[in-house]
Amino acid sequence: MLRGGASPAGTPRNVLCAPHPILSAVAEPVDPTDPDVVAAAADLLATLRHEPSTTGLAAPQIGLRLRLIAFDTRVHPRGRSSAGELVVANPRLAGASHWDHGREGCASIAGLTADVLRATRITVHGHLPGTGEAVTIEADAFEARCIQHQLDHLDGLLFLDRVPGALSLHRRLHSCDA
């Protein structure tokens, strides 16, 4: 099970940078109990742990066209809810409400942030890699933003695809931008 400290050891991978073609491809659904998927999830989590200012990653960002996301928003200054350190297979947005703009950045896009409209309260359903156990995540504030950002990666979208134009972009000033 890839939740908290109960995960198998993984190997950190390089994070792909835009415009790598995998970042614009739709990721494939996975069998969360498949040993290769469990190994990929462990690598995703190891990579997240290895990226000091990153709160979430999606499998396409490490070169895998798999529907896997990892996130941990516990220490982010704008966080309220926190599911902790978690990897989710085949996550899907089941509910979204209370929309607001917020600043986002991305490990795959160096030096830029933008104000992006996202729901501030969400419900996500998915499965835990390893056991295949169904999981439901109720998230708000920054954690909701982080998860939606990762879900976009699974659909081949970058946060830049959600901004209306160049005037919405900002130079990244510090590491706590999403």
Rank of each mutant, 00 (worst) to 15 (best):
M1E: 14
M1F: 07
G5Y: 07
A6I: 01
S7G: 14
P8A: 12
A9M: 13
V15D: 02
V15F: 01
L16K: 03
P19T: 00
P19K: 01
P21A: 10
A25I: 00
V26H: 04
A27I: 05
E28Q: 14
E28T: 11
P29E: 12
D31H: 11
D31Y: 09
P32A: 08
T33N: 08
T33R: 15
T33A: 12
D34I: 11
P35E: 06
D36G: 11
V37Y: 08
V37C: 11
A39R: 13
D43S: 05
D43R: 06
L44K: 12
L45P: 09
T47W: 10
L48W: 06
H50Q: 13
E51H: 13
E51P: 08
P52S: 12
T54V: 14
T55R: 13
A58D: 09
A59K: 06
A59W: 02
A59Y: 04
I62L: 10
L64I: 00
R67S: 05
R67Y: 00
L68I: 09
I69T: 05
I69Y: 02
I69D: 03
A70Q: 08
D72F: 04
T73M: 03
T73H: 01
V75D: 15
H76E: 05
G79S: 15
R80E: 12
S81W: 10
S82Y: 10
S82M: 13
G84I: 05
G84T: 04
G84K: 10
E85N: 04
E85H: 05
L86E: 05
V88S: 06
P91Q: 07
P91L: 07
P91V: 06
P91N: 07
A94E: 14
G95N: 08
G95P: 00
G95Q: 12
W99R: 14
W99Q: 12
H101G: 09
H101D: 12
G102E: 04
G102D: 10
G102Y: 12
G105V: 09
C106F: 08
A107V: 07
I109Y: 01
I109V: 15
A110K: 13
G111K: 08
L112S: 02
T113Y: 09
A114P: 06
D115K: 14
V116R: 02
V116N: 06
V116M: 09
L117Q: 14
R118F: 10
A119D: 01
T120C: 05
T120A: 11
T120G: 09
R121N: 03
I122L: 05
I122H: 00
T123H: 09
H125T: 07
G126I: 01
G126A: 04
H127I: 00
P129I: 03
G130T: 05
G130C: 09
T131W: 01
G132W: 07
E133W: 01
E133K: 11
V135K: 00
T136G: 02
T136P: 01
E138C: 05
E138M: 07
A139W: 04
A139I: 01
F142Y: 14
F142N: 03
A144V: 05
R145Y: 08
I147V: 15
I147F: 04
I147S: 02
Q148W: 02
H149D: 00
D152N: 02
L154Q: 03
L154P: 06
D155V: 00
G156M: 04
L157D: 03
L157M: 11
L158R: 06
L158A: 09
L160D: 03
L160P: 06
L160M: 13
S168G: 02
L173K: 14
H174S: 13
H174K: 09
S175N: 13
C176R: 15
C176L: 15
C176H: 15
A178K: 13
